[in-house]
Design a protein around this nucleic acid. Structure first.
Length: 824
RNA sequence: GCGAAAGUGGCGGAAUUGGUAGACGCGCAAGAUUCAGGAUCUUGUGGUCGCAAGGCCGUGGGGGUUCGAGUCCCCCCUUUCGCACCA
């Protein structure tokens, strides 16, 4: 787009690169430990080096950069680092598509993105950059893995796991999304595979992860994490399966121990270990056939919500410990082996699923709760499960107890009799971290015939990735196919051994990157404890909400694990979390190359300059919501910056005398704006910051027409305005600051203190209401006594017109604001 | 089904948390300047009735509390997101 150049005008293309170079040369944004100043660690989720920086990257970085700049001007020593989450599936998949080595592809992207990031004019301290694919980084990812292993928080298990047939790797449960169970990265439906894999014991911290009392995180994220962790309170109850003479314990989990007397049958998951032995000879063929089908079915089929329940009687029985009753044991695929104990007691009268199952197979239904005031109903009469409260009936010692007390009583009874106890289960599963891919940090374990799984000794870390490899996926770990790489010796016995050939989930790398920023070159440990003491925890963490049940759970888990190992301190890594929304294309659809609605920040910077783009990203929507892009809207912030320039830098001295009150009024508005902008920066309300600056400019413009520029206050207004603007439009503010002859760099100035006295209005608009409706507006002194306000309001023309023929019943006076006259 | 968030002009969004609804910007309209403009500058811009002064209506819908409700309470509708045979 051709653009006329005015040599005197605001020309971002000229000033922006100039200032970026100067800042870099002067080291303006270096952040070092300084015990004399309060610290502020502002962290934004590190980008994936996927090729090009898109507008979403700008959206997640620029507004928080402005906030970090604001915090710095307020006196904090601010750490605002940046890095690249360089390992992982997308990099590898993209490299495969283009047939170049993932490493080459990734590092080329990083170079490109680094340049684009610099164009934003951020205050990133580039000395602290990290790249998670650098050996000096992943050395410590591997080291940390081993700490988890040594402390029993990482373990290897043979299990049915989720496998993405397109990415050719296993996935963590968190990376399988939707009711149709798709791969989080590529949307391909996952399948089940039985494999031996490495897990992290996230479930050990399930309860602690539910505690958000020490952190200021959005309610939404808390809810997502709570749902994900899925805590259920209930009881384990031990039935006795009729196997052999003495029987065998058969433990179930229930959230409704109070309904134990209504259990009329039991259901086991088809994979339950007792199934084979409970099965009678007569039922064996049928049971085996059912188990066979169930195992062959995918989870998608098994978990389909609308699927009709199926099941088979094993021919076996179990005894209910509270009443000694013998109930039939069934198997059905709606009971999942992975949850609870893989066995349930079925109470069809009070559970919808059990009800449906009982009706289908003609099993008895016995109500044990009678709703308040209702007539007794027999199980046969029921048309649906009774899920409401009431009074216990047919429940042995509990009969007559209100249902809401029964729960506690039964639990106590179970414990007393030694046949059960209160218990809690979770939906959360342990984190599967093995990946059958090349482009990741190798799991630093060696397998020896004699010594088993042995950690690679610290002095042999990192376990380097070989470059000469067939990295195209084949379903096997590429490292396994390398002719020599996996061959090694056992660190314990020196005998022949082979390396683990799976790599780690990339979320491992990002679980601790905030620690590596503290001392990216430190080689005595993952981070320098002295830096940790000063900078941690992260004060404000920002990023997309899509990580709520992945990265944000993992990183909290990681921190808690490391805390218990004595490696870090404190219970939480990030005190405050804020999420930005997503920028959609102009068509309100998700941006994508195929739709052709992608907004390229480079083009925008070419046309408007980085400052305009920064300001628009702060202004155009509520940051936490995002919304569709509007290519016309950006003209507004472009115009704003040009007008500021015009007003302060270019406009000729007109020699006009200031009209009375103009200077005071302008200064008052400036102070009011300062007050609002300060508050909004604190609370990350970016859109109203820019709006307030625009509003002030409108007033500046008007005051200038009335001679304000010749008043001594004019320079003070410029001073405060440029300081307020500096975090938003750092280049333009720096340039104007210098041109107007202010000392030093605007970015090293203090944030001005609000002059409350100057900000206070002398006169206010007094709103006069009659019966709650606006009838007049009066301009009155701000400190007008209440009685006087009352009198003036009653006497006002607008009120009088409506009060004719009415009687005033009451007058409500809100000092400095309004008077409401109640009349009939 | 359970849970969360959100519904305000043509559009993006403000509203000091119960006190002037629509700040700021986009768009639109009229005017000025300009050879011209998607440049710049004024002014206007929720709907409706009215020549006007001004009136009436208006924050998804319906009730309620209050002198006063976008804001608080109850019921309902819509949209988005998350979880979902989890015992």
């Amino acid at each position: 787009m051709e653009k006329p150049r005015n040599p005197r005008g605001y020309d971002p293309a000229e000033i922006e690169p100039k200032w970026q170079e100067r800042w870099e040369a002067e080291g303006l944004y270096r952040a070092d430990v300084d015990r004399d100043r309060p610290k502020h660690y502002a962290l934004t989720m590190l980008p994936y080096p996927s090729g090009d920086l898109h507008i979403g990257h700008w959206y997640s970085i620029c507004p928080v950069d402005a906030r970090a700049r604001f915090m710095r001007m307020r006196g904090a020593n601010v750490l605002f680092p940046m890095g690249f989450d360089a390992f992982g599936l997308p990099a590898e998949n993209a490299a495969i598509k283009r047939n170049i080595h993932p490493k080459e592809w990734t590092y080329a992207n990083i170079d490109r993105m680094r340049g684009q990031l610099r164009r934003m004019g951020t205050m990133i301290d580039w000395r602290r950059e990290i790249v998670s694919a650098d050996p000096e980084y992943y050395r410590w990812t591997q080291w940390l893995f081993l700490q988890f292993f040594k402390h029993g928080l990482a373990y290897r298990k043979y299990a049915a796991v989720d496998w993405c047939p397109s990415c050719n790797t296993t996935l963590a449960r968190e990376q399988v999304i939707g009711d149709d169970r798709r791969c989080e990265r590529c949307d391909t439906p996952v399948i089940r595979k039985e494999l031996e894999q490495w897990f992290f014991r996230t479930t050990r911290y399930a309860d602690e992860l539910l505690d958000f009392s020490r952190i200021d995180w959005p309610e939404r994220v808390q809810t997502l994490q709570r749902n994900w962790i899925g805590r259920s309170e209930g009881a384990h109850v031990v039935f006795t399966a009729e196997i052999g003479e003495a029987g065998e314990p058969l433990e179930i989990f229930t959230t409704r121990p109070d309904t134990l007397w209504g259990a009329t049958f039991m259901v086991l998951a088809p994979e339950h270990p007792l199934v084979a032995r409970l099965t009678s000879d007569a039922q064996r063929a049928e049971v085996e056939a059912y188990v066979e089908t169930a195992t062959r079915q995918t989870d998608i089929q098994r978990e389909a919500a609308d699927k009709e329940k199926t099941g088979v009687w094993t021919g076996g029985w179990a005894i209910n410990p509270v009443n000694g009753e013998k109930v039939p044991v069934w198997i059905a695929d709606y009971v999942l082996m992975g949850y609870g104990t893989g066995a349930i007691m079925a109470v069809p009268a009070h559970d919808e699923r059990d009800f449906a199952f009982a009706r289908k197979y003609g099993l008895p239904i016995r109500p044990v709760i009678r709703p308040e005031g209702a007539e007794p109903v027999s199980g046969d009469e029921l048309t649906e499960a009774l899920t409401h409260d009431g009074v216990m009936v047919d429940s042995g010692p509990l009969t007559g107890t209100p249902a809401d007390q029964a729960y506690e009583k039964v639990t106590a009874l179970l414990e007393e009799k030694g046949v059960g106890r209160g218990a809690v289960t979770y939906r959360l599963r342990d984190w599967l971290i093995s990946r059958q891919r090349y482009w990741g940090a190798a799991i630093p374990i060696v397998y020896c015939q004699k010594d088993g799984a042995v950690p690679v000794p610290d002095d042999q870390l990192p376990v380097l990735l070989p470059d000469d490899i067939e990295w195209r996926p084949s379903g096997e770990s590429p490292l396994k196919l390398h002719p020599t790489w996996s061959k090694t010796t056992c660190p314990v016995c020196g005998g022949e051994a082979r390396r683990e050939t799976d790599t780690m989930d990339t979320f491992m790398c990002s679980s601790w990157y905030h620690l590596r920023y503290l001392s990216p070159r430190y080689d005595q440990g993952p981070f320098d404890p002295a830096e940790y003491d000063y900078w941690m925890p992260v004060d404000t963490y920002t990023g997309g909400i899509e990580h709520a049940t992945m990265h944000l759970i993992y990183t909290r888990f990681f921190h808690k694990g490391l805390r218990d190992m004595g490696i870090v301190q404190g219970d939480e890594p990030m005190l405050q979390l804020r999420n930005q929304g997503i920028i959609l294309g102009e068509d309100s659809e998700k941006m994508s190359k195929s739709r052709g609605n992608v907004v390229a920040p480079d083009d925008l910077v070419d046309r408007y300059g980085a400052d305009t783009v920064r300001a628009y990203l702060m202004f155009f929507a509520r940051w936490e919501l995002g919304g569709p892009w509007n290519s016309r809207g950006i003209e507004g912030t472009s115009r704003w910056l040009r007008r500021v320039w015009l007003m302060f830098v270019e406009a000729e001295e007109d020699g006009k005398e200031a009209a009375p009150g103009i200077a005071e009024g302008l200064w008052r508005k400036t102070q009011k704006t300062l007050k609002q902008v300060t508050r909004d920066f604190e609370t990350l309300q970016f859109n109203t910051i820019v709006a307030a600056l625009m509003e002030l400019l409108n007033e500046v413009s008007q005051a200038r027409n009335e001679g304000a520029a010749s008043s001594p206050v004019w320079r003070n207004v410029q001073d405060v305005y440029l300081r307020m603007m500096a975090p938003v439009a750092p280049h333009a503010a720096a340039e104007m600051w210098e041109r107007l002859g202010f000392e030093g760099s605007v970015h090293l100035q203090d944030w001005p203190d609000v002059d409350e006295a100057a900000a206070r209005d002398e006169e206010v608009t007094l709103v006069v209401q009659v019966n709650g409706k606006l009838r007049d507006r009066l301009t009155v002194p701000v400190d007008l006594p209440e009685e006087e306000m009352r009198q003036r309001a009653l006497a006002s023309e607008g009120a009088q017109r409506f009060l004719e023929g009415m009687t005033v019943r009451k007058v409500v006076v809100v000092p400095g604001r309004l008077v409401n006259i109640v009349a009939t």
